[in-house]
Design a protein around this nucleic acid. Sequence first.
DNA 1: CTGTGTGAAGGCTTTCACAGCC
DNA 2: GGCTGTGAAAGCCTTCACACAG
Lengths: 206, 206
Amino acid sequence: MSKIEVPRKAIYRLSLYARALMKLRDNAVETVSSRALSKAAGVKPAQLRKDLAYFGQFGTRGLGYKVDGLMSAITEVLGTNSFQQVILVGVGNLGVALLRYGGFNKEGFEIRAAFDVDLERPRSIPDGVALLHYEKMIGYMRKHSVKMVILAVPAMVAQSVSNDLVEGGVQAILNFSPAVLEVPEDVVVNSVDLALELENLSYFVR
Amino acid sequence: MSKIEVPRKAIYRLSLYARALMKLRDNAVETVSSRALSKAAGVKPAQLRKDLAYFGQFGTRGLGYKVDGLMSAITEVLGTNSFQQVILVGVGNLGVALLRYGGFNKEGFEIRAAFDVDLERPRSIPDGVALLHYEKMIGYMRKHSVKMVILAVPAMVAQSVSNDLVEGGVQAILNFSPAVLEVPEDVVVNSVDLALELENLSYFVR
DNA sequence: CTGTGTGAAGGCTTTCACAGCC
DNA sequence: GGCTGTGAAAGCCTTCACACAG
């Protein structure tokens, strides 16, 4: 049952499959083959089947997968079947951007609080999100059992904020700061570096 | 000289090294070993040396790398030594967010135009970015030789927009739409799916 | 003696290909 | 006949370990 044996990429792709399945369900499709589903997700059929095999047997030979059944199996594995509390730390340009983006809220996550050291600076953030002082963060995390955090602070302070998050009991960090975070090994970090993604593309432009 | 033999991940890490080197240069450090530099970038020493080896020999045995020299070698490989025109397509919540974020402009990229089908809707985008109608996009791309595009349109229209981009001569797309894009093989796509990153983390939260 | 550059080994993922079930 | 589940093979990337240069 150890989660460590499943390749991280496989878990990543699970979300892809969930998306594709949602679309199929909206179109009232009841059954789907690994070929069709994998194509919709942009991977090879064998990969899809292998990925699913890490968690059990969900299909019927000769037939395929039941859209509904596979869908709920995947959301259960991912833990997105129940709502998750998420906080955002660092309400600068990027932080505000992420709050306004709103894409997070759709998939079972709820951002009810955002933290920053400077509350005076004018910003326009969505209703329903409380803007609180950084000092209150650790207390808030403990009180509301916050396990997931979106980190959008300047690189210079990323590590020290990260340390505070660990103290608050964080288990997973979605890190937008261009910094390498050192965390205990039971804390998972997913880094997204927007500037880096663009820089990387530049290599392929002749 | 074929670019295809270099692992994409290695190219990705080059940006990481460039960042770390920049920091060293700011601190007036002149020479750095693979051990020190790799630690700053969050990778293993051997990996750093291997990555660099794809492009040439930049170090001095027994000594290490000259910060300045390696820095310019890397930016040349990445193509970030000269400014790149970039346009943004899809000025919705996320699009505006990305424009205001500004992190792209720092690293040698310049967003001077953004395109959308609806220009009436009120938005606050930065000065210096022209908001233009989608119909003008292909013409603009050709006129200004735009090779790189940031795509932030709804998933439903992502493929059709992508087709137009190809027609406009796009070579690289940074795709924020939760969709699998089909493009000619000489066009490179880098997808960033914010909701997916969060969903993925959810798996690791107990 | 220090630290790079690199062939070889090792490990991880993807892909193949087919046995087994519907 | 059709399609999943899966051991085995292939491919790719990372890490080791040492020859070699300064």
